[in-house]
């Protein structure tokens, strides 16, 4: 297996706060990698640097051998990276399918086309992405009226519209019912298998993390404190201590 993403010594501070410190990791092709950590650990900041939305103070990010640091977000998307946001970012004044069509139009480099009809462009491709995430029946509803869980799934469809090789999902199941969470992560797992892409995701729900990730990294106060398989992370005393203060979720997990 080769690494699709190589992150080396990535750091970012905001004023005095060291949000991310010296983080290094590799993401393999076809891997479903979880990044966990308490609130404020620096997960979203990591994602923002990976996607070019924040410039790191130092460090390097190689995607498929190409340096991403310094590139604008849209360039990183063109290389084949898609992302979803912790707080969903969609176009509320468009219908669900138009949200996907707009992304597809960009992917096919037609954003500056003045003459064709957007509404009838890439309808099939958009419908296919929507059925993949289970949103086909809501295709013509305005995005503004969607339930939060549905917005998350719409965002996933949008993020897949450039046929990405790497998908970054920041808390993809936040705001969903537990059954929906399992379903969505199962879908993510299927997408990884079928399309051969790699996913880096953050998640609060430990059930989801332990059930679906291939590997887990733990971030605390901006520093990576552990990385390994599900079993290794469960057993890691340092993780138990910092992440959950010797918390109960792990114990529950172990017992169940």
């Amino acid at each position: 297996m080769t690494a699709i993403l190589e992150v080396k010594n990535l750091s970012k501070s905001f004023g005095g706060i060291k949000a991310v410190q010296d983080v290094s990791f590799d993401l393999m092709e076809g891997e479903l990698l979880a990044l966990i950590g308490p609130n404020g650990a620096g997960k979203s900041t990591c994602f923002n640097m990976l996607m070019g939305q924040l410039p790191p103070n130092s460090g390097s990010i190689l995607f498929d051998g190409k340096e991403l640091v310094g590139l604008p977000t849209r360039k990183i998307w063109q290389y084949g990276v898609g992302r979803t946001f912790q707080i969903t970012a969609t176009y509320p004044t468009m219908t669900v399918i138009e949200n996907v069509q707009t992304a597809l139009l960009s992917f096919h480099q037609r954003s500056f086309n003045f003459f064709s009809r957007a509404k009838t462009s890439y309808l099939d491709e958009a419908a296919e992405l929507l059925s993949l995430v289970g949103m086909a029946d809501q295709a013509d509803r305005p995005a503004a009226v969607l339930a939060y869980g549905d917005l998350k799934r719409l965002e996933l469809a949008i993020a897949l519209s450039n046929a990405p090789r790497l998908l970054l999902m920041d808390e993809p199941t936040a705001g969903m019912a537990p059954s929906e969470r399992i379903e969505l992560m199962a879908l993510a797992g299927r997408i990884v298998e079928e399309r051969g892409l790699s996913i880096l995701f953050t998640e609060h729900d430990m059930d989801v993390v332990f059930a679906h990730s291939h590997r887990i990294m733990v971030l605390n106060r901006g520093e990576l404190i552990a990385s390994g398989s599900v079993e290794e992370i469960r057993a890691n005393p340092r993780v138990q201590e910092v992440y959950l203060g010797g918390g109960s979720v792990f114990a529950d997990e172990g017992a169940s």
Binding site: A89, T90, Y91, M94, A103, S106, K119
Partner: peptide, 26 residues
């Protein structure tokens, strides 16, 4: 033009710069 791909990109850039840039729209 409002109904063209450009018109949609215009509205996309208004609705969510974050999403638009993250899907390749300048």
């Amino acid at each position: 033009v409002a109904h063209s791909p450009f018109g949609y990109s215009v509205r996309a850039s208004r609705d969510s710069i974050l999403r638009a840039e993250a899907t390749g729209i300048n």
